[in-house]
Deep mutational scan, measured.
Amino acid sequence: NQASVVANQLIPINTALTLVMMRSEVVTPVGIPAEDIPRLVGMQVNRAVPLGTTLMPDMVKGYA
């Protein structure tokens, strides 16, 4: 099963992502693939992302 990117903490709206904010986990539904974590660093979320939430492509500005 493919691992997805999951929020390791509450990520406030418009926050630029850092490695410490994300972890990989096998979840359903599948979100952004864990191998894209390096690409996500520095990108901003367009909404608040609660701890444990799977990051979906539409949550990250410029990802989709």
Results as ranks from 00 to 15, higher is better:
residue 1 N to E: 15
residue 1 N to A: 15
residue 1 N to G: 15
residue 2 Q to W: 06
residue 2 Q to V: 12
residue 2 Q to R: 02
residue 2 Q to E: 15
residue 3 A to D: 14
residue 3 A to N: 13
residue 3 A to G: 11
residue 4 S to P: 01
residue 4 S to D: 00
residue 4 S to K: 02
residue 4 S to W: 07
residue 4 S to I: 02
residue 4 S to A: 12
residue 4 S to L: 01
residue 5 V to D: 00
residue 5 V to S: 08
residue 5 V to K: 00
residue 5 V to E: 00
residue 5 V to Y: 00
residue 5 V to A: 06
residue 6 V to C: 02
residue 6 V to A: 05
residue 6 V to F: 05
residue 6 V to N: 03
residue 7 A to E: 00
residue 7 A to D: 00
residue 7 A to F: 01
residue 8 N to Y: 14
residue 8 N to F: 15
residue 8 N to K: 14
residue 8 N to T: 13
residue 8 N to G: 13
residue 9 Q to G: 08
residue 9 Q to K: 05
residue 9 Q to M: 12
residue 9 Q to S: 12
residue 9 Q to D: 14
residue 9 Q to N: 08
residue 10 L to I: 14
residue 10 L to V: 04
residue 10 L to M: 10
residue 11 I to N: 00
residue 11 I to H: 00
residue 11 I to A: 02
residue 11 I to G: 00
residue 11 I to C: 02
residue 12 P to F: 11
residue 12 P to N: 05
residue 12 P to D: 14
residue 12 P to K: 03
residue 12 P to W: 05
residue 13 I to E: 09
residue 13 I to Q: 10
residue 13 I to M: 07
residue 13 I to N: 09
residue 13 I to D: 04
residue 14 N to S: 08
residue 14 N to K: 04
residue 15 T to R: 04
residue 16 A to T: 08
residue 16 A to C: 05
residue 16 A to P: 11
residue 17 L to T: 01
residue 17 L to S: 00
residue 17 L to N: 00
residue 17 L to P: 01
residue 17 L to A: 01
residue 17 L to V: 06
residue 17 L to D: 01
residue 18 T to N: 03
residue 18 T to R: 08
residue 18 T to P: 02
residue 18 T to M: 09
residue 18 T to V: 04
residue 18 T to A: 03
residue 18 T to D: 07
residue 18 T to C: 10
residue 19 L to V: 10
residue 19 L to C: 10
residue 20 V to S: 06
residue 20 V to M: 14
residue 20 V to C: 07
residue 20 V to Y: 09
residue 20 V to W: 05
residue 20 V to N: 07
residue 20 V to I: 08
residue 20 V to R: 04
residue 21 M to Q: 10
residue 21 M to D: 10
residue 21 M to Y: 06
residue 21 M to C: 02
residue 21 M to A: 04
residue 21 M to R: 08
residue 22 M to V: 12
residue 22 M to E: 01
residue 22 M to A: 02
residue 22 M to L: 10
residue 22 M to K: 00
residue 23 R to N: 10
residue 23 R to G: 11
residue 23 R to V: 14
residue 23 R to K: 14
residue 23 R to H: 12
residue 23 R to A: 09
residue 24 S to N: 15
residue 24 S to H: 15
residue 24 S to W: 11
residue 24 S to T: 08
residue 24 S to Q: 13
residue 24 S to V: 10
residue 24 S to I: 07
residue 25 E to I: 02
residue 25 E to N: 08
residue 25 E to K: 02
residue 25 E to C: 04
residue 25 E to H: 06
residue 25 E to T: 04
residue 25 E to Q: 05
residue 26 V to P: 13
residue 26 V to A: 11
residue 26 V to E: 15
residue 26 V to H: 06
residue 26 V to L: 14
residue 26 V to G: 14
residue 26 V to W: 05
residue 26 V to K: 02
residue 26 V to S: 14
residue 27 V to N: 11
residue 28 T to K: 02
residue 28 T to Y: 04
residue 28 T to I: 05
residue 28 T to H: 04
residue 29 P to K: 06
residue 29 P to A: 12
residue 29 P to M: 12
residue 29 P to V: 09
residue 29 P to S: 10
residue 29 P to Q: 13
residue 30 V to M: 06
residue 30 V to S: 11
residue 30 V to P: 13
residue 30 V to E: 15
residue 31 G to M: 05
residue 31 G to W: 02
residue 31 G to D: 00
residue 32 I to F: 03
residue 32 I to A: 02
residue 32 I to T: 03
residue 32 I to R: 00
residue 32 I to D: 00
residue 33 P to I: 11
residue 33 P to V: 15
residue 33 P to Q: 09
residue 34 A to R: 03
residue 34 A to G: 10
residue 34 A to M: 09
residue 34 A to T: 10
residue 34 A to D: 14
residue 35 E to K: 02
residue 35 E to C: 15
residue 35 E to R: 02
residue 35 E to V: 04
residue 35 E to N: 09
residue 35 E to S: 08
residue 36 D to C: 14
residue 36 D to A: 03
residue 36 D to V: 07
residue 37 I to K: 03
residue 37 I to Q: 14
residue 37 I to D: 00
residue 38 P to V: 08
residue 38 P to F: 09
residue 38 P to L: 13
residue 38 P to S: 11
residue 38 P to H: 12
residue 39 R to N: 06
residue 39 R to D: 02
residue 39 R to Q: 07
residue 40 L to C: 03
residue 40 L to Y: 05
residue 40 L to H: 01
residue 40 L to I: 10
residue 41 V to I: 13
residue 41 V to H: 10
residue 41 V to A: 07
residue 42 G to R: 05
residue 42 G to C: 06
residue 43 M to Q: 15
residue 43 M to K: 08
residue 43 M to C: 08
residue 43 M to V: 07
residue 43 M to P: 00
residue 43 M to E: 07
residue 44 Q to M: 13
residue 44 Q to C: 02
residue 45 V to K: 00
residue 45 V to G: 02
residue 45 V to H: 00
residue 45 V to M: 14
residue 45 V to Q: 01
residue 45 V to C: 03
residue 46 N to T: 10
residue 46 N to L: 11
residue 46 N to D: 11
residue 46 N to W: 05
residue 47 R to C: 08
residue 47 R to M: 13
residue 47 R to D: 14
residue 47 R to T: 13
residue 47 R to I: 10
residue 47 R to E: 12
residue 48 A to C: 13
residue 48 A to W: 02
residue 48 A to E: 15
residue 48 A to P: 07
residue 48 A to T: 15
residue 48 A to M: 14
residue 48 A to F: 07
residue 48 A to H: 12
residue 48 A to Q: 10
residue 49 V to K: 01
residue 49 V to P: 01
residue 49 V to Q: 03
residue 49 V to I: 14
residue 49 V to W: 02
residue 49 V to T: 07
residue 50 P to T: 15
residue 50 P to L: 14
residue 51 L to Q: 15
residue 51 L to N: 05
residue 51 L to F: 11
residue 52 G to D: 11
residue 52 G to H: 14
residue 52 G to M: 14
residue 52 G to T: 13
residue 52 G to Q: 09
residue 52 G to E: 12
residue 53 T to K: 11
residue 53 T to N: 09
residue 53 T to R: 09
residue 53 T to H: 15
residue 53 T to L: 07
residue 54 T to A: 13
residue 54 T to G: 05
residue 54 T to L: 09
residue 55 L to C: 03
residue 55 L to Y: 01
residue 55 L to M: 08
residue 55 L to V: 09
residue 55 L to A: 01
residue 55 L to W: 00
residue 56 M to Q: 09
residue 56 M to F: 06
residue 56 M to P: 01
residue 56 M to S: 09
residue 57 P to Y: 03
residue 57 P to C: 13
residue 57 P to A: 13
residue 57 P to L: 04
residue 57 P to N: 11
residue 58 D to N: 06
residue 58 D to Y: 04
residue 58 D to P: 09
residue 58 D to A: 09
residue 58 D to Q: 07
residue 58 D to F: 07
residue 59 M to T: 05
residue 59 M to E: 06
residue 59 M to C: 04
residue 59 M to Y: 13
residue 59 M to R: 04
residue 59 M to S: 08
residue 60 V to R: 01
residue 60 V to Q: 01
residue 60 V to T: 02
residue 60 V to A: 01
residue 61 K to R: 09
residue 61 K to A: 05
residue 61 K to Y: 10
residue 62 G to E: 12
residue 62 G to T: 05
residue 62 G to N: 09
residue 62 G to S: 09
residue 62 G to L: 08
residue 63 Y to P: 05
residue 63 Y to Q: 06
residue 63 Y to I: 08
residue 63 Y to D: 04
residue 63 Y to V: 04
residue 64 A to Q: 15
residue 64 A to D: 07
residue 64 A to W: 02
residue 64 A to V: 09
residue 64 A to M: 14
residue 64 A to N: 08
